[in-house]
Amino acid sequence: MLTLDEGTLIAYVDGELDTQTAREVEDKLAKDENARKYVEHLRALAALTRVAFNDTLHEAVPQRLKDAALGRTVKGVMIPQEHVGTGNVVTFAPKGGHSSVSRALPLGLAAAAAFAGLVLGLGGGSVYSEKSANKALQLAALSLQQDQTAMNQALNQALEVNVSGNALTWTNPDTGRSAAFTPVRTYQDKSGQFCREYRKDIKSADQTDTTFGLACRDESGTWKTRYLILEDGSGRAL
């Protein structure tokens, strides 16, 4: 005989019960208002806990950790990084002017990275490959950052103009990243502020990440995300 103790309800909320047991729990919940309230409470707590530490995911990872992950620390001392000055961007930007800032910047950085690699490469092959791998990482981070800025703008537009259920799609052929933003439902709170639930599918080379969020519109027309829920349960970084 199944009893709705805390352990069972917690396992139910975590999706850890087999189908048969979960069904029994649901039958009992239908007749037990207190247990239902407790389950709702647990669900809300689980949803909040899930996103409570997400600030960390959005921070830039310190370079020393990337170095450690790539095995670049020598006796606990970090190999110093080359700085890519903005001067290089101008010097090495292709002739014919910049068609747009977003294009000119990565090209300039790539040229600067190649140049830095070339000069350092005279000193020894291993230094060269480490430096250029580093630059590649920096470039990847930069392009991700630019994509994120563009995707934030697209999301804002989707929330501002799209009817619920209609997706706004965004693609960057340079990075192969694409995204779809779909407002799901619209609310208005007591103070008259509009909030919308939305679905965000971000597709990169080998995977699609789906997240659900709740964003509210401020007076300036900017949609600020209040909650984000990851769908696949893997807790992947956004």
Binding site: E40, H41, L42, R43, A44, L45, A47, L48, R185, T186, Y187, Q188, D189, K190, C195, Y227
Partner: peptide, 25 residues
């Protein structure tokens, strides 16, 4: 669950998150 209740008085934060003061329009 207990700590959240204590921090937020009788009006628990979890309840607020489960059913925010929003109405569907």
């Amino acid at each position: 669950a207990r700590m959240m209740n204590e921090m937020n008085g009788s009006d628990s934060a979890a309840d607020e998150a489960a059913s925010p003061t929003l109405k569907e329009v």
